[in-house]
């Protein structure tokens, strides 16, 4: 009897804490929704009103018409999908070499690769920009997409750690059956690494979808802009249309939200993958 009431108490405390935690995390989202429905005058009311009166649904109309919303959505989707394909293919490919192939200097090169993670983006910004300019890639999507087809240190690291956990026997068996390394990577390692690949894909998605600086410096033609650039257009030197901006932000966030709920499992796994296996 005593035991049972203990567990009930335990549960109550746990759920209360969880509820509190979720409330803290959902609050900004609710505030975003609330602001996106407010009129121009009710924005900074004290005490703040959570439920706007009346609902200004026209903010959403204004948001969609303030910049070419569909066009920017298409641009962003195009870039994001290509980047996801690129990073999944290239990072796992390189990771396979680091995890399973034996070649001279492999470990040293691994360290060199990890060291590139230490370079802050600001340091490489101008040299990279000049490089892409010499290639004639300014005002195209190439500087935003192509780098993802050459792997990135963190993703390679992530994939390598995952590949290391796959039993050697599997690849050895494949080799005995006459499987080439390329084939082993594609037919055995890739299908076995779906959770890691999904993590990688989701990371790339959020990174590219939310990327602001890349499109800002490389794109000059407003028709080629991405959603993030569109969002910022509401911010002006003397004042911002917060309500319209929040409405647009919510629309831009929807795909991320949808992705999160459908792949929640992988998000969590991603955290444990990156957290424990380092």
């Amino acid at each position: 009897m005593a035991l049972k009431s203990d567990t009930i108490l335990h549960r109550i405390v746990v759920y209360a804490l969880l509820l509190l935690g979720s409330a803290a995390f959902i609050l900004p989202l609710v505030w975003l929704l609330s602001t996106s429905l407010k009129g121009d005058t009710g924005l900074f009311e004290i005490p703040p009103k959570w439920v706007p009166d009346p609902f200004h649904w026209d903010n959403y109309k204004k948001a969609v018409h303030s910049f070419p919303f569909l066009r920017y959505t298409w641009n962003t989707v195009l870039i994001t999908v290509l980047c996801m394909i690129g990073s999944m293919l290239s990072s796992s490919f390189v990771a396979y070499a680091f995890a399973r192939l034996r070649w001279p200097g492999r470990d040293a090169w691994f360290v060199v690769m990890l060291a590139t993670m230490m370079l802050p983006g600001q340091v490489t910004m101008i040299p990279l920009f000049i490089l892409f300019k010499e290639l004639g890639w300014i005002n195209t999507y190439l500087p935003l997409i192509v780098p993802f087809f050459f792997g990135s240190a963190f993703y390679i690291f992530l994939m390598r750690q995952f590949f290391m956990t796959i039993p050697k026997e599997l690849s050895e068996a494949a080799k005995i059956d006459g499987c080439t390394e390329l084939y082993t990577w594609w037919r055995i390692f890739m299908p076995l690494s779906k959770p890691a690949l999904a993590t990688l894909g989701i990371f790339t998605f959020t990174l590219v979808w939310n990327d602001f600086q890349g499109p800002l410096i490389y794109l000059n033609d407003t028709n080629k802009f991405t959603l993030m650039l569109g969002l910022r257009s509401f911010q002006q030197q003397y004042g911002t249309r917060w309500n319209v901006m929040m409405a647009a932000s919510l629309l831009v966030m929807l795909p991320t939200l949808a992705l999160f709920f459908s792949f929640q499992r992988y998000f969590i796994e991603g955290v444990t993958l990156t957290g424990v296996k380092g």
């Binding site: 033609d221 407003t222 910022r232 911010q235 030197q237």
Partner: peptide
């Protein structure tokens, strides 16, 4: 060909 970028960026 004009390009407007907000004041902060």
């Amino acid at each position: 060909e004009q390009l407007g970028v907000n004041f902060f960026d």
